[in-house]
Simulated assay, not measured.
Amino acid sequence: MADADAAAIRAERGDWMGEHLAMYLESGGAKGHIVDLSSVGGRAMTTHCLIRYTGRKSGRTYVKPLIYGNVGGEIVVVASKGGADTHPEWYLSILANETIGVQVATQAFEATWREPEGTERHQVWEYMSHLYPPYIAYQRSTSRHIPLVMLSPGRPVDVFTPASS
């Protein structure tokens, strides 16, 4: 899928990601963790985390809501960008950092990250595609290899706030 197509889909859906992020942050994670994505091909009980990272070019702090899964105690997120031909900025930015902040519901922590490879990657992809079936169409629509990121929880941190993004 061309980046312009992905942008058009985002525009059609309005600022739902911004509204979702605001709800998650303003509630301290009490709201926004589970979202009904059945209207866009997802599941009614889709789990979301927040990631907080430093922009690789700007040096600014950003917070993004992402669908996540849990595999063996690691949080898994998918750098899909809706099947666009380029990686999402958050993914490119975390490549430049050893750790990022993660919030799952009302719990926040610092996390290290890694990308699964080989058989493990295949198994994790299957799991994440089951959690959010549109990932399959996203991968089919682009020639890029959509990255999977495994986040290992570390030390606890304060929950994210609107001021932290």
Rank of each mutant, 00 (worst) to 15 (best):
A2V: 14
A2C: 14
A4L: 10
A6F: 10
A6M: 14
A6Q: 13
A7P: 07
A7G: 08
A8E: 12
A8H: 08
R10F: 07
A11W: 04
A11H: 05
E12N: 11
R13F: 09
R13V: 00
G14R: 04
W16F: 11
M17F: 15
G18A: 11
G18K: 06
H20W: 05
H20R: 02
M23W: 10
L25S: 02
L25P: 00
E26R: 09
G29W: 00
G29I: 01
K31E: 11
G32W: 04
H33Q: 08
H33L: 00
D36A: 08
D36M: 03
D36Q: 04
D36K: 01
L37M: 09
S38N: 03
S39F: 03
V40W: 02
V40S: 03
V40I: 10
G41N: 04
G42L: 02
A44Q: 15
M45Q: 14
T46H: 01
T46F: 01
T46S: 10
T47E: 10
H48Y: 05
L50H: 01
L50N: 01
L50Y: 00
G55Y: 01
G59C: 03
G59L: 00
T61I: 14
T61Q: 14
K64F: 13
L66W: 05
Y68R: 11
G69P: 09
G69R: 02
G73A: 10
G73R: 04
V76D: 12
V76K: 05
V78C: 12
V78N: 09
K81F: 10
K81N: 03
G82K: 05
G83V: 12
G83K: 10
A84Q: 05
D85M: 14
D85L: 14
T86F: 12
Y91T: 02
L92N: 10
S93V: 03
I94R: 04
L95F: 05
A96W: 06
E98D: 08
I100G: 09
G101A: 00
V102I: 08
V104F: 02
A105F: 00
T106G: 07
T106Q: 11
Q107K: 15
E110N: 13
E110V: 15
E110K: 15
E110D: 09
A111R: 04
T112H: 05
T112G: 07
T112C: 02
W113K: 06
R114N: 03
R114A: 01
E115K: 03
E115S: 07
T119M: 15
E120N: 12
R121F: 08
H122T: 15
W125G: 12
W125T: 13
E126H: 15
Y127I: 12
H130P: 07
P133T: 07
P133L: 06
Y135L: 01
I136Y: 10
A137Y: 08
A137W: 05
A137C: 06
S141P: 00
S141Q: 15
T142C: 10
S143C: 13
S143E: 15
R144M: 08
R144S: 04
I146F: 03
I146T: 04
P147D: 07
V149W: 01
V149Q: 08
S152N: 10
P153C: 08
G154F: 10
R155Y: 13
R155M: 12
P156G: 04
V157K: 06
V157D: 00
F160M: 11
T161H: 07
P162N: 11
S164F: 06
S164E: 13
